[in-house]
């Protein structure tokens, strides 16, 4: 998880943060923070309740989501918590859910990621496996 990614090497993360004016968001953000709307489809890199949240928009994530849904859903952002990917999904009405909050919708990926951090209470995300066996 320590290798430098192409995005970091290109400096796009810092650039996007500055453009969005949230470079100061690396301190503990409040649970009620509503700046998420500004980053709806943007890059996020922040520390929230001691966990590093990184969100990469679909256009920059190289389409490696292709196999997760079997439905050609390459338009999803990549959400990582301390380097581990969080499985996310977009609803038809534009809201979002994740595998750790699967029955509750969020307005945007950052709200979803912060909710996941609160839910995890420090626990590390497991690698998600695609379609499991049959019952």
């Amino acid at each position: 998880m320590n290798k430098i990614t192409r995005r970091q090497a290109m400096g796009t993360t810092a650039g996007a943060l500055a453009a969005l004016g949230i470079a100061g968001a690396t301190a503990h953000a409040a649970a009620t923070d509503s700046r998420a709307a500004a980053t709806r489809s943007g890059t996020v890199d922040e520390v929230y309740q001691g966990r590093r949240i990184r969100i990469t928009p679909a256009s920059a994530s190289g389409g490696h989501h292709g196999g997760h849904h079997g439905g050609g859903h390459s338009g999803l952002p990549t959400v990582r918590i301390d380097g581990r990917e969080l499985h996310v999904m977009r609803n038809a009405d534009g809201t979002w859910i994740s595998v750790v909050n699967h029955y509750e919708t969020f307005a945007d990926p950052l709200s979803l990621a912060r909710a996941a951090v609160r839910e995890l209470q420090g626990a590390v995300l497991a690698p998600f496996s695609p379609m499991g066996g049959t019952a």
């Binding site: 595998v99 379609m131 499991g132």
Partner: peptide, 15 residues
């Protein structure tokens, strides 16, 4: 395992 597999693969715009 089966339930999680379906919940992760069922999407509004796909299968």
């Amino acid at each position: 395992t089966t339930h999680n597999g379906f919940i992760m693969s069922d999407t509004d715009s796909g299968d």
